[in-house]
């Protein structure tokens, strides 16, 4: 029996050595049960130890190993080689971000935006319950209202799928807005107005042209596109309330 093999074409960028990234092709054994990440690990372990990329949990929950596979953002631990075999797979770092090295992107912009949308529970003055009073009651229905948006693993696939972000990095972007919605819709939170400074700004929901691919590539079905459109509707309602009832309604 001849051993089956296939090829990965990986974008390499070694900042000390080269001006611009180039593709390198690696031949790897094909195994039915391997995910793409397994193949990349095989390359690092056996062919070229200098290949750099991020990974950890290999079960689709830590969000480290997002890459472009044949031009589509995917978690490399969640896609099997068999889905491509015998064709070549082109592996690139996530689109829309600067490349630090090989498959490693610079995430600073996202981390900054994450903090900007205030992703924590904000309560009105005097509404904080003490620990002795126990938990805040929240019905399963109230939980269901935001649960979907709390599933984001910050894998950045949605940013990589978003042409708006690629064209204009000032866009707050899908994951951050969905996370803001996650807190806005939480029955225990009162911070929506504070978050609107960012979410309803020009760089917030209004930048979105609703390509919708963010939701298509999301490995956790968070539906950031939906979160953003809902943000547009509520932002519009706020605006007209403000205009029609400037005294506050």
């Amino acid at each position: 029996m001849t051993r089956k093999t296939m090829e990965l074409e990986i974008l390499r960028y070694r900042p000390e050595k080269e001006e611009r990234p180039t593709f390198e092709t690696y031949e790897i054994p094909f195994k039915e049960e391997w995910v793409v990440l397994d193949a990349i690990n095989y390359i690092k372990d056996n062919i070229d130890g200098s290949l750099s990329y991020r990974w950890s949990c290999r079960m689709g929950v830590c969000g480290s190993c997002g890459m472009m596979l044949n031009g589509i953002p995917k978690l490399s631990c969640a896609v099997f080689l068999r889905d491509y075999y015998p064709d070549k797979v082109r592996v690139e770092p996530l689109t829309g971000f600067p490349i630090q090295r090989d498959l490693v992107i610079v995430m600073d912009d996202f981390i900054h935006k994450l903090k900007e949308i205030k992703p924590w529970i904000i309560r009105d003055e005097g509404q904080e319950q003490s620990l002795e009073e126990g938990e805040y009651l929240q019905s399963p229905a109230e939980l269901a209202a935001f649960k979907q948006y709390s599933m984001c693993i910050n894998c950045m696939l949605c940013y990589a799928a978003c042409p708006v972000y690629a064209i204009d990095n000032s866009f707050v972007g899908p994951a951050a807005i969905a996370l803001a919605q996650r807190y806005n819709l939480d029955s225990r939170d009162h911070g929506r107005e504070l978050r609107q400074d960012v979410i309803a700004s020009n760089e917030g929901v209004w930048e979105c042209t609703f390509v919708g691919e963010c939701s298509e590539v999301c490995p956790k079905d968070v539906d950031p596109a939906g979160a953003i459109q809902r943000g547009k509707v509520s932002g519009t309602i706020d605006y007209f309330k403000d205009v029609l009832m400037p005294w506050g309604g």
Partner: peptide, 15 residues
């Protein structure tokens, strides 16, 4: 960040 006038344009767009 400045207050956006986008809601006007967006609601006209949506209508």
């Amino acid at each position: 960040m400045s207050k956006s006038s986008e809601p006007i344009w967006w609601s006209l767009f949506a209508a």
